[in-house]
């Protein structure tokens, strides 16, 4: 009975969090719409989703990493590396099919992620340190393979650029890819044994191990998925902006972590929902998209983002405390 009660309250908290986020998004949208009626037009929403697609794809991987009590600081460097690799191949061998090139980028990303996982699970290095080291190595390697040169717009083939800028059924490819990633992630996390095992590993590694889960393998898997998504988005990033530099996507890892935290993923592991991070990345995207629309100087963007994240995590803690207090009171009665 007690267990049932606890479960019910947990559901309440999760729902509260997502509803709160949704409410926040709606309030912001209404406020912006009043200031500038061009916000809720089809074109702008399309833009908004297009800009949020890469962030939201990465959030899926980052959520899984955070669920296993880890963190991955190397994703932006990984994106730059895989994207640069793909861009160089496009430049030097324009006849290769874009999809094949994308697969090369994805494999490069997956390999880097796999190494991360190996260092963390078998090498027993703290995730923040291992991925920090990896970040350095990948940034440097990006410079090394590009010899410090850019790959510019004219060196990309149209087919390659079309991967990110083209449309299918009237919808931008980036949005379609993001939707596909989310559908797959939802199924994987909630309806496969491996998906549930990842959560078990995160919420209590010791008991997961005792109950026969190969936690090392789960950690490697999670970082490989993160690497795979970084490779994918790295290629898409280069295709979208039609320019590959060794400092592409610098600092983007913090945006992704922030979107996850906004979406209610706990940094202490074991909890995080696909719906939450979708809303989290959407809110992050809206913050980026709307500030220019309501004539806020772009220089305010960082501070507003930082403040929103800080307030969101603190509000989350306060809500959780309130919930626990109420539950305790109820039990006393």
């Amino acid at each position: 009975m007690e267990k049932l009660l606890k479960k019910k309250n947990n559901i309440q908290l999760d729902q509260f969090r997502e509803l709160g986020l949704l409410l926040f998004i709606i309030i912001i949208s209404i406020m912006v719409q009043i200031r500038n009626p061009s916000f809720l037009t089809g074109e702008n929403i399309n833009d908004l989703l297009k800009n949020t697609a890469i962030l939201s794809i990465l959030s899926v991987g980052m959520m899984l990493v955070l669920v296993t009590r880890g963190i991955d600081l190397s994703i932006a460097a990984n994106m730059a590396f895989s994207g640069m690799l793909a861009s160089i191949i496009v430049r030097d061998f324009p006849q290769i099919h874009p999809v094949l090139i994308m697969l090369i980028g994805i494999s490069a990303g997956t390999l880097s992620g796999f190494i991360n996982g190996l260092l963390i699970s078998k090498g027993k290095i703290l995730p923040i340190i291992a991925t920090l080291g990896m970040m350095y190595v990948l940034r440097g390697s990006t410079f090394l393979i590009s010899k410090g040169q850019w790959v510019s717009a004219y060196q990309f083939t149209d087919g390659f650029k079309k991967m990110a800028t083209g449309t299918n059924w009237g919808i931008n490819n980036l949005i379609l890819i993001a939707v596909a990633v989310y559908a797959l992630a939802y199924y994987f996390i909630n309806h496969t044994r491996t998906g549930r095992r990842i959560y078990a590993t995160g919420s209590n590694p010791d008991s997961a191990k005792i109950s026969g889960i190969n936690t090392d393998r789960m950690v490697i898997l999670v970082y490989s998925i993160m690497g795979m998504l970084s490779g994918l988005t790295g290629v898409l990033w280069m295709a979208r902006f039609a320019s590959a530099q060794s400092d592409s996507a610098m600092g983007y890892e913090m945006n992704v972590i922030a979107a996850c935290v906004l979406g209610g993923v706990s940094m202490s592991g074991g909890s995080g929902k696909v719906g939450g991070i979708l809303l989290g990345s959407l809110l992050f995207g809206i913050l980026n998209n709307t500030l220019p629309l309501i004539n806020v100087s772009p220089f305010w963007q960082n501070a507003i983002q930082g403040a929103v994240i800080l307030l969101a995590v603190i509000a989350n803690v306060l809500a959780k405390r309130g919930m626990t207090k109420r539950n305790l009171n109820r039990r006393d009665r």
Partner: peptide, 8 residues
């Protein structure tokens, strides 16, 4: 978050 905030 304070990293983003302070530089912001």
């Amino acid at each position: 978050s304070t990293m983003i905030l302070y530089r912001g």
